[in-house]
Design a protein around this nucleic acid. Structure first.
Lengths: 207, 207, 207, 207
DNA sequence: CATGAATGAGCCTTCATTCAT
DNA sequence: GATGAATGAAGGCTCATTCAT
């Protein structure tokens, strides 16, 4: 078997300065590089080589932090969901706990804004890659968040639904579709989008 | 087992009967084989080899009818959209032209049924593959169909919308999401799904 | 996902004439090229690239006929065992069926000759690569062949053994070791090797 | 799970206690870890990472004590040979210097026992790795030991050989093969193996 | 029309070794 | 002495597409 000699066998490389950085920084660099490339040219068209080149690290460094290419996508997804949910939760938290219409409004505005700001990454990371049922996991979080908001409003008599979950899904996916449509038409201002959706959803919410 | 091909005798050529069939049949066989495989294992995981093997033709035949692998996907997409739209149009056509609520109802029921019946192919062919903006093309057709239905109802005073297109999108994507959710939960009966949606949308349609 | 464009994407290659040959020929070319390289530089040090280059075919051709690199080794092994056993069987067959000492002699001479002629390939293919228990399979064949010869001689009263199998193994492995030792000392003439072994084994065979 | 390293906090460095131990202990830990892994999964499949992890030291420590991965194998080999030879020499030493048959018997029994006890390490370290002619070196030692024993017996008139070395090789390799065969058949008791061999070899030794 | 052998660009991943700390 | 983050050369394998028959 002869133990193939790899790596520094011929002792030829020495282009990059061997810099040691905190794991966090390296992971972040890698993830950002990946995100930019995924957005720019798609996941499939982005190679691990592209990623490490853009991140300015050796290929081994990539595999030091991620087990496979898939892993970056998953990590990106998690980060996206976390950021998204937190962002919306913050906005809602600033409303009076018992003003349910205001809270829904905050959710809608926050969601539209967050999505308009990051739809590219969202699209690429959630639609372009499917891996068993892990797909639903992250959507479930945001649906749950909205469902709870709707359920609380219903408990307080602000509105009624025979099926809260179905309502949440229609609202979320409807929002999603309308934002996509606006973006497709090059309208990146969240305000009018929010306005159009608000009118529609207020009808569904009113008795 | 060592060899991939054991090659029977001296010339291994001509295993299959060189059968000549009408182009339509060939195309259809190929598309069906592709659809089944795409559904079963995903587009990426399906090779052209898999397709021709399942279709029972030589690989050259595939490239005789389709320029690239992409082409089958596009063809499948078109076929799906055409069937879908026709099916829904038929159901609507059976309603009185001026009973707009009934027409919407027919649209909703027909759409849910059609989607429940074919969601697998739909998902794979529309979500798993993205090629520039060609994606929107086919969705546009069904949105247009619904928009027109809504617009006519509005013109007749059955309901009002400040933005018909936004409403159509919310309705379509909302429907889509709720059906997906039901299927995810293993509820493949279109009736209750239709019921849930009908309640929600009727509010949006009513003044 | 974008269906990475591979192969003739950029349409640049056209170095080799696309020649279509019988599967047998291609398989043989590939196996011979592999054997030569394995012998020359070891299995590990030989890459599939090396093999196809030497065989004068494209890399895809290799994988058209062999599923993995391992497969060539296995195929080489099978071929070696088959040839070896046949060769020895032929020599034995030329002896009178009841002259057991002569038959054993034929076995020994044939075996030594066959091994001296091909020990390089043998070593590389049998010793340098281990894959579960498949290893023993091929040795078993030759041990069985010798065991039978010994058993028949015993039945005819030519010699006796309390354990035929053990005797066969000692004879075979002993022969193996002595030949290796001779080759190590650069003595490639089978005759004296055969002579030395014959003396030793005749003692074991005599009552 | 996305990240290979979750890195606890800001600096993930220094997880292990930087313990300073005598070189001997370190070397021994490393060699033992390597041996266990080589036996368990093969040399090729064992990475330096695996070894240091099992030994509980940093990767740098490995390269502090061994120049390359090969070095451990070589060290293991030497250790094995040394132990083996010593063990057998001890047993022989307990026989009367002029009772040659007894000495041979002791050699055979000791060898079979030693080999049965360590065949796994032996196999992996001697068969799975080939590096130029260094291979023969260690086998040579044991062959020499046996050759001398046989030669002395011959000088004393206990037996005769036209070629002592060939006899030694047949005996050693024959023993090797029969033990392997027994182990393959799950017979790990050295006694019956020794018995079978003793019968065979006594014939070769007797005039 | 039909076939399937042939092709090669390029991808993901591995891992021995180095060296800044 | 000890550590482990960093590195990049190299390898096995895939598969859309071509084209000689």
């Amino acid at each position: 078997m002869a133990l193939r000699t790899r790596g520094g066998g011929t002792r030829s490389y020495r282009a990059r300065k061997r810099l040691i950085l905190p794991a966090e920084v390296r992971v972040d660099d890698l993830m950002s590089a990946a995100a930019e490339l995924f957005i720019g040219r798609g996941i499939e068209a982005t190679t691990v080589n592209d990623i490490v080149e853009r991140a300015g690290v050796g290929k081994g460094t990539f595999y030091h932090y991620f087990a496979t290419k898939e892993d970056v996508i998953l990590a990106l997804r998690e980060r996206f969901s976390r950021d998204f949910t937190n962002r919306v939760a913050d906005v809602i938290a600033q409303c009076p706990p018992d003003d349910h219409p205001a809270r829904f409004d905050a959710w809608l505005r926050g969601t539209v804004e967050a999505y308009v700001a990051n739809y590219k990454l969202h699209d690429v990371v959630f639609h372009e890659f499917r891996h068993s049922n892990r797909n639903a996991k992250d959507k479930e979080i945001v649906i749950a968040q909205l469902s709870e908001l709707l359920a609380e409003g219903m408990k307080a008599g602000a509105w009624t639904f025979s099926d809260v979950r179905a309502a949440a899904i229609v609202i979320f996916d409807g929002m999603h579709g309308v934002v996509d449509d606006a973006i497709e038409a090059d309208s990146h201002d969240p305000e009018p989008i929010y306005g159009r959706l608000s009118v529609l959803f207020s009808r569904m919410l009113s008795v």
